[in-house]
Amino acid sequence: MNDMDMTPYEHLGGEAVLKEMVTNFYGFVKQDEVLAPLFPDDLTETARKQTQFLTQFLGGPSLYTMEHGHPMLRARHMPFPITNRHAKAWLGCMEKAMDSVSLQGPLRDFIISRLTMTAYHMVNTSDDSHGKENNY
């Protein structure tokens, strides 16, 4: 298989690298003052589902859909107030996680571009409604 036939998931390094990146991501989330209050103390299941989703999102096996059905991300996130500030913080943690696995270059740019669209698509609450100023 040549590089042109590889998915972003395969270019990233597959399951091992993605799991490491997601584990590191949630370590950063736990330390983030904006995001930490939104997440449960035990992030084991959250990280497992995120790994499944990102595997599929990046062209790997459809693990998330096989276990949970269609991702329906916006609907699944609707019960949680998500602001532009949250989306920005989430992306910041993801960028740190990418740094932690030395993900650089066009693949990183591609992934962060797709995740940026997804993160801001999840926004369902104004920053003002939480007394926070829009930071982007």
Rank of each mutant, 00 (worst) to 15 (best):
R74P: 00
D127M: 00
A36M: 05
V17Y: 07
C93I: 00
M1K: 13
G69W: 02
E45S: 14
W90H: 05
A47Q: 15
L12H: 03
V101K: 04
D127L: 01
I111Q: 06
T55A: 09
Y136G: 14
L12D: 02
M117N: 12
C93H: 01
V17S: 09
G59V: 04
F28W: 08
T46S: 15
E10K: 11
A47R: 10
F80Q: 02
G69R: 03
L38V: 04
P106V: 10
H11F: 14
Y120P: 03
L107E: 09
A119P: 06
T7A: 15
E133G: 10
L38N: 08
C93D: 04
S100P: 06
T51M: 07
H130T: 09
T65G: 10
H86I: 04
A87K: 02
G69L: 05
V123W: 04
S113L: 13
T125E: 05
S129Q: 11
T125F: 00
K132H: 15
V29H: 01
R48W: 03
L107Q: 10
M4W: 12
H121K: 11
H68Q: 15
H68E: 06
E67H: 13
D127A: 01
K19Q: 14
G131D: 07
N24I: 06
N134P: 01
A89L: 00
F53E: 07
G59H: 05
E133K: 11
R76Y: 00
C93V: 00
R108G: 06
D32I: 05
T23Y: 14
Q56S: 08
L63N: 12
G14R: 08
M66G: 08
M4Q: 12
Q52E: 13
S129A: 15
K88A: 15
G59Y: 05
A16K: 14
H77T: 00
R85N: 15
N84C: 15
D109Y: 08
L38T: 06
D5M: 14
E20K: 15
F110C: 07
L54R: 06
N135A: 11
G14V: 09
D5A: 13
A16F: 09
A36S: 11
F25M: 11
R48M: 12
M98T: 07
G60T: 10
T23K: 12
Q31I: 00
Y9R: 06
L115Y: 05
L35T: 00
F110Q: 10
V101F: 04
T23P: 03
V17M: 13
M98E: 10
T46F: 05
H70V: 03
R108C: 06
A97R: 01
Y120V: 02
Q52W: 15
H121M: 15
M72A: 07
Q104H: 14
Y136V: 12
E33R: 03
L12V: 07
L107N: 08
S102G: 06
H11G: 06
R76K: 10
P61F: 11
D42V: 04
T55G: 09
M98D: 03
R76I: 01
M66T: 11
E20A: 12
W90A: 08
L107S: 09
K30F: 03
M21G: 06
P81Y: 02
A119R: 03
M78G: 00
R114A: 13
T44Y: 02
E133N: 09
D3F: 12
N2I: 08
S129L: 10
P61M: 14
F53G: 07
E67Q: 15
L38E: 03
R108M: 06
L115S: 05
R76W: 01
